[in-house]
Design a protein around this nucleic acid. Sequence first.
DNA 1: AACGCGCCCTGTCCGC
DNA 2: TGCGGACAGGGCGCGT
Length: 276
Amino acid sequence: MPELPELETIARGLAPRLPGHTIERVTIRRSDMLAPPLRAAEVRRRLAGRRFVSVGRRGKNILSVFDDGLRMLINLGMTGRLVMSDAAAARDLRHVALRFFLDDGAALLFDDARRFGRVELHDAASWAARDATIGVEPLSDAFTAERMFELTSASATPIRNWLLDQRRVAGVGNIYAAEALWRARVHPARPANSLTREEAGALRDGVAGVLREAVDHRGTTFRDYRDASGDAGGFQFRLAVYDRAGQPCPRCGTPIERMVMSNRSAFFCPECQPPG
DNA sequence: AACGCGCCCTGTCCGC
DNA sequence: TGCGGACAGGGCGCGT
């Protein structure tokens, strides 16, 4: 489900709500959503009595930091949701996997129909190692055109697949990969290392631009995505190519095409984004 | 070592 | 209305 803008929106919804509050207890209905070798008993023990210090985002993950230095990383997979129990939408959740009960009587609910989501716990050392596996934040100052060119130059993978690899640039998924490539006028099947310095710079701008705009619109809701209050996003009305096969390119009017790469749809304008 | 693919799981939609 | 197949904002483990 969610990519960087959706996770950012969720994090911004939780940040004013959770810090300062303590988890009294955790109930776990789906222990298969704990990252191995994590066990339910260990999660309950390590989180009980812990006070949230901060809640933010790293790549496509929600990162919570607790008063003893413990960190909890939550990945929402395709259909995961984090909703406060006191939001009206909480009543509609039908696949709640974990409940984090707070000291004020409310609870943070982790719901996930497909159960592709994951919960990780880290101490300082394991977090440093985990953090190092996640790529550059595309909305940070470190994400420069030069850095982008260095990264694309190092791989022959098709650029659409390249963008989905979280170890390089963190937070881009299938929707925003399609949109960023359209903005940069780069065909999705181009080998990453075939991009010129100028194209890599345009793609950097396309990635950063579409993510920033989507954050401003509180994310894209296609089917499942909801924020921490249960509300849908608004960026779906501004997509240029994703899921728009056969519809006119907003730039040139040519019908958008769909192709399958690595068993996932890729959308592009055959006029604006010529192959090779 | 880097890359492509199958698979994890449930829900929804579309054609017959 | 029912049923099978395709498809879905992700990511891991495997084989090559």
